[in-house]
């Protein structure tokens, strides 16, 4: 097992954002994570990355108990993260962003792999441009994925990287992700709102609603589940 969550709860004061969630991710798996806004998807990613601390439960990654592992060490054991709101490293060029990610995420440097990632994410022509100011939204999202890939992840968490892209952009981006998966053998855990995309790409889907995991199964099975349908139709007003 790559990642295992065992009864994980994350609370902010009185607000329980993630409630008693258990699931696991295996090597090379492509797993979708869906649920209405505010369901706790980003918070779940934050807990796995180490940006927030669960109030209950246990998480393991590749046999490491994550409890005692600080954020900056989680990249080294293979946890990669692309933020929902892109976070290019300010003051650095696109290539420098990847250099930093590689150096600290893997402990060594491999310029060949950086070129490969630039090529894969179609950022080669902007490699020496300022990352924070000269990228369009799609490119910023591609850089999010690129940075994560540069750390040699075994699992990549993608938080709505397709949101805001038009259909062609989405398709191109999915192609990029698929290439990345083939080349680097990384498992994907992806948050995505578009049910069609999820159905086409994921072998398995998790559904969160009000912090609770309400379904875990194949896309066909999950999207037929009445509770899931109800959470989707009623979720917006809740």
């Amino acid at each position: 097992m790559l990642l295992t969550l065992d009864h994980v709860t994350v609370a902010f004061g009185g607000l329980v954002a993630v409630s008693d969630v258990s699931f696991s991710v295996s090597e090379h798996e492509v797993l979708g994570l869906v649920g209405p806004n505010g369901a706790g998807k980003t918070t779940l990613f934050n807990a796995i990355s180490g940006l927030v601390r669960p109030s209950k439960g246990k998480m393991t990654f590749c046999g490491h108990d994550l409890t005692g592992i600080p954020i900056h060490k989680r990249a080294r054991i293979g946890i990669g993260r692309a933020f929902q709101v892109p976070q290019p490293m300010h003051e650095l060029t696109v290539r420098e962003n990847l250099i930093v990610a590689q150096h600290f995420g893997t402990g060594h440097s491999n310029p060949g792999k950086i070129d490969e990632i630039l090529d894969l994410t179609r950022l080669g022509h902007k490699a020496n441009r300022d990352a924070a100011s000269s990228l369009a939204l799609t490119e910023q999202k591609a850089l999010e994925v690129g940075k994560a890939l540069a750390t040699n992840p075994r699992m990549l968490m993608l938080d709505e990287v397709l949101a805001g892209l038009e259909t062609n952009g989405k398709r191109a981006f999915m192609q990029t992700l698929d290439d990345a998966r083939q080349r680097f053998g990384v498992a994907l855990l992806m948050v995505e709102h578009d049910i069609e995309t999820i159905s086409n790409t994921c072998q398995r889907v998790l559904v969160l609603n009000f912090g609770k995991l309400i379904a875990d199964g194949s896309p066909e099975e999950v999207f037929r589940n009445p509770e899931v349908i109800r959470s989707y139709t009623g979720g917006e007003t809740a």
Binding site: H72, R74, A75, Q87, I99, V100, A132
Partner: peptide, 24 residues
């Protein structure tokens, strides 16, 4: 050096540097 690049990036992009493994 990557250390210097990470330091320059750290102030405005703390989370971004943390999740790629930078020990600020």
């Amino acid at each position: 050096r990557p250390e210097g690049l990470a330091l320059r990036a750290m102030h405005d992009s703390e989370d971004a540097t943390l999740v790629v493994g930078v020990n600020a």
